[in-house]
Write a protein that binds this DNA or RNA. Structure first.
Lengths: 111, 111
DNA sequence: CTGCATCCGATAGGATACTG
DNA sequence: CAGTATCCTATCGGATGCAG
């Protein structure tokens, strides 16, 4: 995803696409919303086809965006738990709104 | 965007990301929803930074998904008008729901 | 276990030129 | 005007190996 042109810095759609238009963000948010707090490996189990690299980098971005909270336990072996922040939770109804529409119009998705 | 794994063919989020996770789809839908029926060049004027290639291919995909209607006038020079279909319009409230959230949480977007 | 570093291929997407 | 064709680049994202 490229830099957002300055002249569009006010456009919410551009922001949304810029932030959630990647392959994994929405799905991770959805999983954390559904399952609650999860460890790194648990999230990966839920998705099967995501690589460690993408899970790691996507989580990092979501954390930077304050949508996901990352809690590290000072243990050996290390334990890290991920959960949605308040802001993250506030976003979910709007994502679910989109997916509910997708469900209703599911037939059109059977190309 | 890659092929959607079969085991996830029922997952609405995967579908949504697969269909609207690209750079331009949502924005084009938004513009057509706001401005109504527009010609090819008029859409492009609204976006400035989209290339002809991407506008063309994205419109084609949206048309294949029955979200956008394409009407050709048999004139010279040619005239083509694009507008949202009923299904396309039914999708908009859900996209706007997402963008309204983005507006509300706009501060966090000032990285 | 939870990552980061590196290498690498696929492809999304931009620039330009050309056509009916 | 409304595209198509071609070329090209950046980046997305996967595989593997390594570290704390």
């Amino acid at each position: 995803m490229k830099e957002l042109p300055i002249e569009y810095s006010h456009c919410p759609i551009r922001h949304v696409v810029d932030r959630f238009g990647d392959k994994w963000s929405m799905l991770i948010l959805y999983i954390l919303d559904t399952k609650g707090t999860l460890r790194f490996s648990e999230i990966q189990k839920e998705m099967i086809d995501i690589s460690q690299k993408m899970l790691s980098s996507t989580l990092k971005r979501l954390e930077a965006d304050k949508l996901v909270h990352r809690k590290v336990y000072p243990e050996v072996p290390p334990r890290v738990e991920y959960s949605l922040t308040e802001v993250g939770h506030s976003l979910m109804p709007h994502i679910l709104s989109l997916t509910s529409w997708a469900k209703d119009h599911f037939e059109m998705f059977q190309r």
